[in-house]
């Protein structure tokens, strides 16, 4: 029983931060049809910037709880910078090229950003632990959980709800759905698709950075954290269906719970359980769990 509870909670915690990252990735893919490898760098930048800023915040003696607002501010700031830098500065020139070429453009950006991180922050690891213990902990049987982790689950739920409301209950959101569904048709109806592209990319990048920013107090922020996350986020997006918001939720839950279950029940398979799930999904539902089969054009 305790193990089942632990699997559930651990899986949800893991799913929540992965969802933040995957939501950004799937949003960008849905709207722009770009599989953004540089998303891993957004996560890393968010984590580094947040770790540095939190360190400074606490060293300067500002109110403790302000550090949570700080993380959001950093994510939004970085998201705008990356959006302008990558989308306006680079990707805009690439539209119309093959999808795979654009993946490589983002792969190249990823390689370059990895080095930029080293230039700015050097090779050492950073940690900013204060916010993690700020909220105290909670006990289930013999299990302790940090309330910060539970707050992460809340954040993920709030973001999922927010995204749903934005897309289905606002005029702009519905227009965005139209762009996701058929870019050419949307453009023909007079929607300024290019502006939607820029805005979407900024939102997506912000989510990626936010994932890193809220994880920074939990982890030791070290070179290479972006690589680890991007592969997991890919798996989630593929499992759920690329470009689908629901898919990102389900994909994150599947990955989070599969990992947690493997750790508790069968640690031997932890290394490849996610790829195995991804392969199964691809074999039986190649478009992912939440995508309709595309019509074949003659």
């Amino acid at each position: 029983m305790l193990t089942a509870t632990a699997i559930l909670i651990d899986g949800l915690i893991e799913a929540s931060y992965l969802f933040l990252v995957a939501l950004g990735l799937t949003l960008i893919f849905g709207v722009m049809k770009i599989l953004n490898v540089a998303h891993g760098s957004f996560y890393a930048f968010g984590a580094y910037a947040s770790a540095t800023a939190i360190g400074w915040w606490f060293a300067s003696g500002f109110p403790d709880y302000g550090s949570f607002a700080l993380m959001f501010a950093i994510a939004i700031g970085l998201g705008i910078i990356f959006g302008l830098l990558l989308e306006v500065g680079l990707l805009k020139r690439m539209y119309g090229k093959d999808e795979v070429i654009i993946v490589l453009v983002t792969f190249a950006s990823f390689l370059m950003l990895e080095d930029v991180i080293i230039w700015i922050w050097g090779g050492n690891a950073y940690f900013a632990f204060e916010p993690y213990s700020l909220l105290g902990d909670i006990q289930f049987g013999t299990l302790f959980y940090s309330n910060y982790d539970l707050a992460l689950i809340g954040l993920a739920v709030a973001l999922a709800a927010g995204t749903w409301l934005l897309l289905n209950r606002t005029a702009k959101g519905r227009l965005l759905l139209a762009v996701i569904h058929d870019t050419e048709m949307a453009a023909a109806f007079g929607i300024n698709v290019k502006r939607y592209f820029t805005v979407t990319f900024i939102i997506g990048a912000t989510l990626g950075c936010l994932g890193g920013a809220v994880m920074a107090p939990k982890i030791s922020v070290a070179p290479g954290i972006g690589v680890e996350v991007i592969v997991l986020a890919f798996a989630i997006v593929v499992i759920g269906g690329m470009g689908s918001i629901w898919g990102a939720i389900i994909g994150a839950l599947v990955v989070g719970l599969a990992r947690a279950a493997a750790v508790h029940l069968l640690p031997e398979v932890e290394l490849f359980v996610i790829y195995a799930v991804m392969t199964l999904v691809l074999i039986f539902r190649p478009e992912g769990l939440f995508m309709r089969q595309k019509a074949r054009k003659i």
Binding site: I7, I13, L143, Y145, E228, V263, H264, P267, E270
Partner: peptide, 19 residues
């Protein structure tokens, strides 16, 4: 327990050890 190298995130492992 065998987490992946550079996983950085040991929530589930710590729960397993706490059980």
């Amino acid at each position: 327990l065998w987490p992946k190298i550079f996983q950085g995130q040991y929530g589930a492992e710590i729960s397993r050890l706490s059980v």
